[in-house]
């Protein structure tokens, strides 16, 4: 009986892993700050923050590394939370913004914007609109009605993603060569060109706060629409809300760093294996762990073969594909 008590005691209040992840996040951010193609000692980094350091170290740390690391962390968090939400929404562990074609829609819109020749806010705006259009398209074509439709939703997403892929190839084939580098950035996902990290942070924190009271409802939703409705959930309203949140998260992530794949798939999965499937834990844990993963991946991207720089999307895909296959192999998908 004692065993049962401890198990039950753990249901709904597992804050310890979250504190652990928070600590890990801080360590990751600090570590990333000390890494770069120009080596600076932790003391020099510290001095940059206290303002006692030389101007060069100041510039390197405060103007180059810090914004990029913050952008990486926020983008990783956004993508992981978006992935976790979509997996609950579709009751399918394969759901992810990249797999569902949302990133593809954003990329097509961004590529068209580059083709026309706009940049800055309009480019981000186009990517945002593209992401939303793609989500509306996928969900509209499926119609969220019954539990059985979640598989149709996933299949529709995969097909739409393939469609975006074809359009991307078409645009690349027609684009003038001098516009190709900027276009490839959207496709690979790259933090080298990330602008201000703050929009991503604001959205990440805001969404986490909105999700905080919804965690238990999402747990129930994960058991199917009918079961959720029988336990007192207004399924349609919750699904629509989650869908809007997930698309906004994805759209902001894509506008910050292009279409970085697999973070939304890998992070929630690994967390579920370790922490179980309580969304109240998984969602904030995804935000933190996703942030850590992308920060570390980007640190690798900018140092591993420096001065040559890799797009971070390559690193996440290299990590993501084997994980995906491993999960398939274990037969839990």
């Amino acid at each position: 009986m004692a065993a049962v008590n401890t198990v039950l005691a753990s249901v709904g209040r597992v804050q310890t892993p979250l504190w652990g992840l928070l600590l890990l996040s801080i360590v990751t951010l600090l570590f990333a700050l000390t890494q770069g193609s120009v080596s600076l000692s932790p003391y020099q980094v510290w001095q940059a923050f206290t303002g006692e350091s030389a101007t060069l170290a100041n510039t390197l740390v405060l103007e180059l590394r810090l914004p990029r690391i913050l952008a990486a962390f926020a983008t990783g968090g956004l993508l992981a939370v978006a992935g976790a939400l979509m997996q609950v929404l579709l009751r399918n562990p394969l759901a992810e913004p990249y797999v569902l074609g949302i990133s593809g829609g954003a990329s097509v819109a961004a590529l068209l914007a580059i083709l026309i020749g706009v940049s800055g806010v309009f480019l981000s705006g186009a990517a945002f609109v593209g992401a939303i259009v793609s989500t509306v398209l996928v969900f509209g074509l499926t119609q969220l009605k019954t539990a059985a439709s979640s598989l149709r939703l996933l299949l529709t997403g995969v097909v739409i993603a393939a469609g975006w892929g074809a359009l991307i190839t078409l645009i690349l084939a027609l684009a003038p060569p001098q516009k190709l580098p900027g276009m490839l950035y959207w496709l690979m996902g790259d933090l080298a060109y990330a602008g201000s990290p703050w929009p991503a942070w604001v959205v990440l924190v805001a969404v986490c706060l909105i999700l905080f009271p919804l965690g238990r409802s999402l747990n129930v939703l994960g058991r199917g629409a009918l079961q959720a409705a029988s336990l007192g959930i207004n399924v349609k309203r919750l699904e629509r809300g989650v869908f809007v949140l997930a698309s906004v998260l994805t759209a902001v992530a894509v506008t910050t760093a292009g279409s970085v794949g697999f973070v939304g798939l890998v992070v929630p999965h690994l967390l579920r294996m370790v922490l179980g499937n309580d969304q109240r834990i998984i969602l904030p844990a995804s935000a933190l762990a996703g942030g850590c993963l992308l920060t570390l991946a980007d640190t690798l991207a900018r140092t591993v073969i420096a001065p040559e720089q890799l797009p971070v999307g390559v690193i996440t895909a290299l990590l993501g594909v084997p994980t995906f296959l491993l999960l398939l192999h274990r037969g839990r998908l």
Partner: peptide, 19 residues
């Protein structure tokens, strides 16, 4: 029953308290 995601028996029974 839709059991798409991993969950323990205790967690599942606890869902009954949701309403």
């Amino acid at each position: 029953h839709q059991d798409g995601f991993p969950a323990t028996v205790a967690e599942t029974v606890m869902l009954g308290r949701h309403p």
